[in-house]
Design a protein around this nucleic acid. Sequence first.
DNA 1: TATACTGTATATAAAGATATACACACCATC
DNA 2: GATGGTGTGTATATCTTTATATACAGTATA
Lengths: 130, 130
Amino acid sequence: MKLPIQLSKDSREPIYHQIEQQLKALIAGGHLSAGVALPSIRVLSKELEVSVITTRRAYQNLENDGFIKTIQGKGTFVAELDQSLKNATKQSAVYDVFQHAIETARNYDYTHSQIKELFLTILHESERRE
Amino acid sequence: MKLPIQLSKDSREPIYHQIEQQLKALIAGGHLSAGVALPSIRVLSKELEVSVITTRRAYQNLENDGFIKTIQGKGTFVAELDQSLKNATKQSAVYDVFQHAIETARNYDYTHSQIKELFLTILHESERRE
DNA sequence: TATACTGTATATAAAGATATACACACCATC
DNA sequence: GATGGTGTGTATATCTTTATATACAGTATA
């Protein structure tokens, strides 16, 4: 299972945290169901061009949060988690990132309609890419 | 001049970088014009409850990018910068953050209309707060 | 010229990222 | 069924980046 994870290396957000967030998204979004085997830390780290320890840290944190289960020697697997946790994860993550975007635009003195226009432009662009 | 800067301490983005980005926004957005004196690193660091060295680092980076000028013993002042740099700063910063928001929502399996709805909700909320 | 502001430099601690060596699990094959 | 190889996760030591405290140096002015 090849994971669709995109790292932005020049973002200031820690790499392990980017991996965490995107894996949470895949699990809470329903793209990865319980029991599915995740790529090994080595495979994933090679794919993302990142150290093994970094992917391990992401997996460890996700395990602490109850999203995955790891078994030494065997591998790492998506955990069962109830719908309420999935929904809560989705909501807070997406809400926060949009709130941040709008605040940034306001800081740069964008007006209501400018923000709306820019948003719609980017939204349509993102659809054309699929 | 008291600056409207909001730090999120539990964000993974480095503090000095948050300060940089928000100051860039204030300058490129036109809220701070050339020649205006910024708060001293000590005053700002007290206001933000952050170390002097951290605010200094933000100021240093901003100086390297040409947004401000500092004179030892006197203080730090907004630099003159031409409109094209202001516009470029605004555009890339705001564009990037919205793109990131939309990508996050897509990762969590939000549909086009769900994204739009959420965006509008938050946009209106942000206006009510003013 | 004292003092109370400014920015600056050095040393240290905590967090993030890495390489390298270790330990457990599976499985082919002898 | 013992054993070697190759896959998995784990632990230790080290480097870089981020954040801090403390001491230093320039500027203005009462």
